[in-house]
Design a binder for these strands. Structure first.
Lengths: 197, 197
DNA sequence: CGCGACGTTGATTTGCCTCAACGATTGTGG
DNA sequence: CCACAATCGTTGAGGCAAATCAACGTCGCG
């Protein structure tokens, strides 16, 4: 695995903490690179989610399948994003989500045990993972807010305004299930909005 | 402020990290006790949320008011819970939520600057706040899931099963707005469920 | 007491879902 | 390289869960 593979992830981390060469070395020692084929699963319900994954190239999503068989997308991840079944990951208990590659992808994985050890040994990383968790929490709360306060059309427009790349890149049924509507309804919504302008 | 006021909060922290007397002292030095009257606001939109609050006694909620004037409750907090406009708190930018006392309450407040300093000086607390943020994130993701995957009735039953104390204690319009339904609909739901049993 | 806040109940409306049929595109095996 | 199936998006008809609107009862409190 070449040095350059780590760079995007190290740059990401450096947005929050300063890294000396020794820190970088400590960190890269626990990173694994993995390739995924489109439609390949990274996590499946019932298995413990051992690692968090950073996307070097490609696109993934995590989703839940409820009793009626409906899919509900929890998260998308493209380049420079992390993804996992976070609930399973932090409690090291069986997952309830699928994590699936939407395209052929390349990811960097870091395992739970190693992350915890790293954080215990190096306060910089403890700080980094605190900040990331806090931002993730704030992000999730904003989503709860959108779900509660906005109509289907407003949710679509908000998301499309914020993440146009993702809207273009992921299948529409996955986007619909993220936004909390049926694929049919999203389709009608888009054609209505297109007609307006 | 008497020592015993700190105890519940210290016990909470000790569930995650071990505290030496010196640690306890470092921590209690940054804690402020505040009393709130029912209907009093702790945070209001436009003002920066300076602190996180731990509930010693009473009940609070955070909520958002959208363009149409509808309220949407983001969180409830009773004894032994934290509450704030977390998004405003971590970015120290203007709040978009109200945080309001639902009863006369007593809280312990810790300010952003002091928490950051404490974490920088004492790795135990950095760890504590990481773990708390991670759990909060996982919790919030589960709520997104419930919002997406469950009907109004299912959301109510799930919440009532998980937090019966809160259902009894908070006004029904606040609960309805937390669960993503109108007060009228929640009322009909409850009477329907009561009739069944 | 009387007012305001809260919960209830019923009639009506609507945003979104379900079901079904139909193109377009992709992928796959012969 | 074509044929065929599978996958995905579109469109329309009809249905339902939940919202809206309105009227009324009740309780706590100034």
């Amino acid at each position: 695995m070449s040095i350059s593979d780590y760079q995007p992830l190290l740059e990401n981390i450096k947005r929050y903490i300063k890294l000396e060469p020794a820190d970088e070395q400590q960190f890269t020692a626990i990173v694994r690179k993995t390739r995924l084929k489109k439609r390949q699963f990274l996590v499946q319900p019932g298995f413990v989610c051992q690692s968090q994954s950073y996307v070097l190239k490609g696109a993934l999503r995590s989703y839940f399948v409820n009793a009626e068989g409906q899919e509900h997308t929890i998260q998308f991840a493209i380049e420079d994003w992390f993804i996992s079944d976070f609930s399973s990951y932090i409690s090291q208990s069986p997952a309830s989500l699928f994590v699936e590659a939407l395209e052929d992808s390349v990811i960097l994985q870091i395992d739970y045990e190693n992350v915890e050890q790293l954080c215990a040994n190096n306060a910089k990383f403890e700080h980094f993972f605190r900040v990331v968790a806090q931002k993730s929490f704030a992000f999730s709360q904003r989503r709860v807010l959108s779900n509660l306060g906005l109509s289907a059309e407003e949710r679509y427009l908000e998301f499309a305004g914020m993440y146009p790349q993702i809207v273009q890149r992921v299948p529409q049924y996955a986007l619909a299930s993220y936004l909390g509507m049926t694929p049919e309804f999203l389709s009608k919504l888009k054609s209505k909005l297109a007609r307006k302008s």
